[in-house]
Design a protein around this nucleic acid. Structure first.
Lengths: 351, 351
DNA sequence: CTGAAAGCGCTTACAG
DNA sequence: CTGAAAGCGCTTACAG
């Protein structure tokens, strides 16, 4: 078996208490014993058993995150940034995938709670149905909602972007590019993000005096964008610009139009939302509302730490700003030089 | 504080031992006590403290995975599949990101080992330099290498694809499409995958009687593909087909060529490797060697379970097959209908 | 500065 | 079937 603290203490000829102190930072130990114990520990290859330590201290250094689907590039980037930020606090990240399904989400949240993680980040699957479990879990341990929120969440924390402002950015942009008729292709009211972006589109288009076509609504899937393109092409007139609910839908729309012989942006402009690597990869590149992934993770982690340190800390809601990331899908073809990894959030090594 | 087993036992008027038996599945308890205890537990909202259980049993239900970068779509999909497979065994997944850096990889592996996870999946950052730590950790707990391996790993387990066969598939395909001159754009010898695909290219091209241009070698990055396209265009003659080391490089090449006015596949064919969502999103869509992500996860998880159940289980090496996934980048434009989510590994909800 | 002891929450032989 | 007790590995008041 692995060597325990007791083994080290025995080998060093001190008590387990002294060994613990010598290895930890708390409590005073003489220089000599400290050196002795540490050397012995090294020699024996001792590694603290986090489980024992965790039981004693009430929790281990683990934080959980529940996302709808890790394989979605947006959430993959987010997870990446969270892992990074948490490492600075010496915290590990337990990942759970809800598949966007309520049952799985509940199961995952309960599992994380019962293993006494220090806290949980959650991207709620539903605006309404996800609420009960999240509220329940939040009473037992620190919880911070990320990207999406549930209804009546004044007591809960949340970190995400200002979706209304983001939609307004892309809409203003296409308007400036000459678009007069616009259509929204996005997701349903199941999630807060779906609601917010859809409502923002209606409000913002009105404000800008744009003519609005009937929206096409379903889910955040590449395949949906593809079929939405077909639906739009069956209409008597294609809008000048299509505002997509996220990059996945936008790239689906792009592929759909191009495959059926339409040109983007000449026949129709397209914008996305999120600023994932997908926006770089399609051609033309995608104009999109860039989310500050690293910043979201940073703010969320800091908020969680606050709640961990102070269980009575009030919930806080933070809305960060998206930035307009221009691509070829709305007219301006980027120079080949200018596009070298300038805007994309994180690099993507893999070898 | 949370309610403990002791609280439940007290409330039910039984000993903690009986309470434990009533709630667990081991040991015999009378129907009546069992019902009583369970009702009491429910009433009090009791949830087992996994930490106490873990300390007693030597390990908690957590498995770790160390990947070079979660935000790479290939690894994001892999993580997704692993999370799925592990859920069937009631195991949680702790995710660690090495950034492809040795120091971070070592740090993450040691951290996972010291917290007594049940086992570790690792995608080694280096073919040579990653070996010592992985071998060391593998002596302490079950380890399965995924996607990439280290040198001299006869004792270690590995699950990945047959890279030579995969490269041969795409090469045969472009040859069948009329390509005579080909070039490889891939990654260096730092990783096993980099080595294998590069060598496979040379061997396979020779076998097929193709003329080979000097390869361009760097890292698995979209940006590298972009610059590699520029490099290739500076040559006196563009090859008929460029075989990329992965989808990221392939999409970079594609974007690079298109931005500089070349047509794909008319001027040059391109193939990728992995079969990520990226292959669907670019246009033309990418012909690529599709990795069976779900199968990789399944085999790897089963192997790890075997090693967990039997510490003396021999290491096993499994090479799965890639399948040729045809896209427009090598000539055949897919029909719009045919492309509705047919080949892409997993769907990508997000809302 | 150092040691003996308690206790975090749980499970499982060991008796009865 | 049920209970008392030991022990997983650790840290930290409490004495000395």
């Amino acid at each position: 078996m692995a060597v325990s603290l007791q083994d080290v203490a025995d080998a060093a000829g001190v008590s387990i208490a002294t060994a613990s102190r010598a290895l930890g930072s708390k409590g005073r130990v003489s220089e000599a014993t400290m050196r002795l114990v540490r050397e012995t520990a090294d020699r024996l290859g001792y590694q603290v058993n986090v489980l024992g330590k965790a039981l004693r201290e009430g929790s281990d250094g683990v934080v959980g995150i529940v996302v709808p689907m890790v394989s979605n590039p947006f959430y993959a980037s987010l997870v990446h940034e969270f892992e990074d930020q948490l490492a600075a606090f010496n915290l590990k990240l337990l990942i759970a995938d809800s598949h966007g399904e309520l049952d799985r989400e509940i199961e995952r949240l309960e599992a994380l709670a019962s293993r006494r993680v220090k806290g949980i980040f959650v991207v709620p699957a539903y605006f309404d149905r996800s609420r009960p479990t999240i509220v329940d879990v939040a009473q037992r341990l620190p919880v911070v909602q990320v990207d999406r929120r549930v209804e009546d969440d004044a007591d809960l924390s949340f970190v995400g972007v200002d979706n209304a402002a983001g939609i307004d950015q892309v809409l203003r942009h296409v308007s400036g590019q000459g678009a007069e008729t616009v259509a929204f292709v996005g997701a349903d009211n199941r999630t807060s993000v779906g609601r917010e972006r859809r409502q923002a589109f209606a409000a913002s288009a009105k404000r800008l005096g744009l003519t609005v076509q009937k929206p096409v609504i379903d889910r955040y899937l590449f395949e949906f964008g593809l079929s939405a393109a077909s639906q739009l092409m069956r209409r008597s007139k294609l809008p000048d610009a299509v505002i997509a609910g996220d990059d996945l839908i936008a790239t689906g729309l792009l592929a759909g139009f191009v495959r059926q012989g339409r040109s983007v942006p000449e026949d129709v402009m397209i914008t996305g939302f999120d600023g994932t690597i997908l926006a770089d990869i399609c051609s033309p590149t995608l104009t999109t509302a860039q989310q500050p992934m690293a910043k979201i993770a940073e703010v969320a982690v800091n908020q969680l730490m606050r709640q961990i340190d102070d269980a009575t800390a009030a919930g806080s809601h933070t809305r960060l700003r998206t930035t307009l990331r221009q691509g070829g899908s709305t007219g301006r073809q980027p120079l080949a030089e200018a596009s070298h990894g300038v805007t994309s959030g994180s690099r993507q090594p893999r070898g």
